[in-house]
């Protein structure tokens, strides 16, 4: 088995790993880094439960080759909160009852985080488009969208 040496940032910390050439980023995140917040729901990019943010963009970790993380900045759900407290997205998800079974929640948070990084004042339609790749079978999305809207960082809120 060929391994590939990669160096990248995980939630603000530098890491260096030798990863199997055929491993997915999701396998490495969960099994080598022990960050279990990113979930495998389908393994083929259809559910979004494994969504992480790489260099500011939301991607499906199951469709990313781990070797491709080399030199990147990776943010997982574990990196959202800081010592001062929860990220506003996390707070609003709780406050607006947007969490039911919680399996889709990390992915939804990461997609929303990437949206906010790109746009300070996304409209509701833009929020819907940003999380349309995050399937949820519990909530019907309404409370999720409302929570994300409530967490929008821009001044127009």
């Amino acid at each position: 088995m060929q391994t590939v040496h990669i160096e990248f940032m995980v939630n603000g910390k530098e890491v260096a790993l030798d990863v199997p050439a055929g491993a997915t980023a999701l396998q490495v995140i969960r099994e080598m880094l022990g960050l279990k917040g990113s979930k495998e729901g389908c393994g083929i990019g259809e559910c979004g439960a494994c969504t992480v943010v790489v260099d500011g963009k939301a991607v499906n970790a199951c469709l990313l080759l781990a070797a491709q993380l080399d030199g990147c900045r990776l943010l997982t759900v574990e990196g959202l909160a800081d010592p001062a407290g929860l990220h506003p997205l996390q707070e609003k998800m709780i406050e607006h009852h947007a969490v039911q079974c919680g399996f889709c929640t990390p992915g939804v948070l990461m997609s929303s985080y990437a949206l906010f990084a790109e746009k300070a004042n996304p409209k509701r339609e833009e929020i819907v488009a940003a999380v349309a790749g995050n399937l949820c079978r519990c909530t019907g999305y309404q409370q999720i969208i409302t929570a994300i809207e409530a967490a929008v960082p821009g001044e127009n809120r």
Binding site: G22, T24, I44, G45, C62, L63, L65, Q68
Partner: peptide
């Protein structure tokens, strides 16, 4: 050849990827 990987990775998981040297052109 792999770039975004959104098709290649699906084939890889399904065991359908026959040519298994991955050349990353992204």
């Amino acid at each position: 050849i792999i770039a975004g990987g959104t098709d290649v990775m699906v084939d890889l998981r399904a065991g359908k990827l026959e040519r298994r040297n991955l050349l990353d052109v992204s």
